[in-house]
């Protein structure tokens, strides 16, 4: 058993890492946009829209991601061939982004809903009293605060989905874990390969979390975000 991975092995693992990072970034972006819209619908939409958003959120939170991936993949392929809708013939990576994006948007919507609820409602009254429309009040008062308050929860979502992306092997996308698996089948270097894979996930988690902490500090507002316990003296 060799202790050093060959250059070829490294090359494959890095290729897998790139796919993992691309997939994670894309699904988080899709989930962010949809999640914010769903949260706003739940918080400020008229009753039917709020109910619709809640159903959406519950449905996608209830779906196991593997089921969602397979159903979307075969469902879209079926529709594309039956009705000759060629634009529905998506590459596997796009299907993965869609399935994960929908799933993550349901979770992210709850992160944002919590953040929205943490904003003092009097600020909205003050915005309306200045003559802002409802949408202006949401755009200029609620969103900038909610996005900041959502960062810690978002960091959690990032580290969760990063590892869940390994399910995409089910529709034929080869990311980090799958690469490791394939190399292992060939070389029988079980421990070495998977310890390396685990370390890569660890590094990715650290980097992402660090990046989000940096964003939180960069956009931080005194009294709104990022107070550390030391500022108040240690209570416990």
């Amino acid at each position: 058993m060799s202790v050093i991975l060959s250059w070829d092995t490294w090359r494959l693992l890095l290729a897998g890492t790139v796919v993992t990072v691309e997939l994670t970034a894309s699904l988080l972006a899709v989930g962010l946009v949809l999640g914010v819209l769903v949260a706003l619908g739940q918080a400020y939409g008229p009753r039917p829209l709020a109910a619709l958003c809640s159903s959406y959120e519950r449905f996608f939170r209830a779906m196991p991601i593997l089921v969602l991936l397979i159903v979307l993949n075969y469902g879209l392929a079926f529709l594309a061939s039956t009705y000759e809708l060629l634009w529905l013939r998506l590459p596997a990576f796009a299907v993965a982004v869609l399935a994960f994006g929908l799933h993550s948007s349901a979770y992210q919507s709850q992160i944002f809903r919590g953040a929205i609820r943490a904003i003092k409602p009097g600020q909205l009254l003050a915005a309306r009293a200045l003559g802002m429309t409802r949408w202006q009040a949401i755009r200029y008062i609620v969103l900038p605060q909610a996005l900041r308050l959502a960062i810690p929860g978002w960091s959690n979502e990032y580290s969760g989905v990063l590892k869940d992306t390994s399910f995409v092997f089910a529709i034929g996308v080869t990311e980090l874990t799958r690469q490791g698996w394939q190399i292992m089948q060939r070389t029988r270097e079980v421990f070495l390969i998977f310890i390396t894979v685990a370390l890569i996930y660890l590094v990715l988690t650290y980097l992402g979390t660090w990046l989000l902490e940096w964003v939180e500090r960069r956009w931080g507002v005194p009294g709104l975000t990022g107070q550390r316990q030391e500022e108040y003296g240690r209570v416990i």
């Binding site: 009097g122 600020q123 605060q145």
Partner: peptide
């Protein structure tokens, strides 16, 4: 307003 309601951010 009684409690100011300044925009916190």
């Amino acid at each position: 307003f009684q409690d100011f309601n300044l925009f916190a951010h």
